[in-house]
Design a protein around this nucleic acid. Structure first.
Lengths: 142, 142
DNA sequence: TGACAAATAGGAATGATTCCTATATAAGAA
DNA sequence: TTCTTATATAGGAATCATTCCTATTTGTCA
């Protein structure tokens, strides 16, 4: 049994969520995906295997995963929501043209020290470095 | 004459953009706004003064401002686009509940050193620290 | 002043996301 | 195991943000 899946079961129980086959499969697909998929992208994959799972269920479930901390919505500036099931500390780089999202890690960024001023008044849930630009192949296309 | 507006005229000319009254007013409203407004919020303000400016013009213009670097789209995770006319180096904190966006500055964050690995393959256009959480008043509301 | 490329208004269209509701089902209790 | 019930789901409709379409208007430059 996958350790991550096992832990997922635990987190669901902690939040009083049922372990439906749909929910488990959606989480599995997200975990295996490296492309930071949108709800639509997850739905396509699920649909191949289980043709009668609805888009609404996929979308609702992805948002639920975000709510319970089993996944999160990748930061970005104004495109469709993209989800990430990898909750270990890492950062994102996004190409503004092809919308591909790349992971990267950097010691200084993975342990951001939130300034005191903020830490006092705000409850910080996530702190990340977000980089936006043009990937190699989009640069070449001009 | 406002120095920022004067500079805006210059930037528009550099990009071959006409100085229409609508464009100028939209930029003015964005500059004066402290709330990182959405297109809808800018439209509301414009509409009070100039009832016959269309929403499309507001939205299109805000995106144009982003394209020419006179403004930018604030990073976030999946809500409506929010715009910022303050192009000097600063970071954002966003409340996941009320969606308010707060500015903050921090020496270390305002000069992010992008790792070599990225710098080689990608053309970095923007690098920011993005913090998400609950603001004081939303914490109190539970 | 005249010509023309660019911008606008207004409404229609699109696309993403969420809501609605009748039905199905996971999971704890008996 | 079977019963009970709160939760989740499918499918489609509705909503909301954003963009597109096109006839008309308007900066801007010669």
């Amino acid at each position: 049994m996958n350790i991550k899946l096992e832990n997922f079961y635990k987190v669901c129980k902690q939040h009083g969520l049922k372990l439906t086959p749909q929910r488990i499969e959606i989480y599995r697909v997200l975990l295996e995906s490296k492309e930071h998929p949108s709800a639509e992208m997850v739905y396509e994959k699920i649909h191949q295997k289980f043709p009668n799972v609805s888009f609404d269920t996929v979308n609702r479930t992805l948002n639920t995963l975000n709510d319970i901390g089993a996944a999160f919505i990748v930061e970005g500036s104004g495109d469709v929501k993209r989800f990430d099931g990898n909750c270990s500390n890492h950062q994102h780089y996004k190409c503004v043209k092809c919308k591909k999202i790349f992971d990267f890690s950097h010691e200084n960024f993975d342990n951001i020290h939130v300034p005191e001023i903020l830490a006092g008044d705000f409850k910080v849930l996530r702190a990340t470095v977000y980089i936006e630009g043009l990937c190699k192949s989009c640069q070449e296309q001009k």
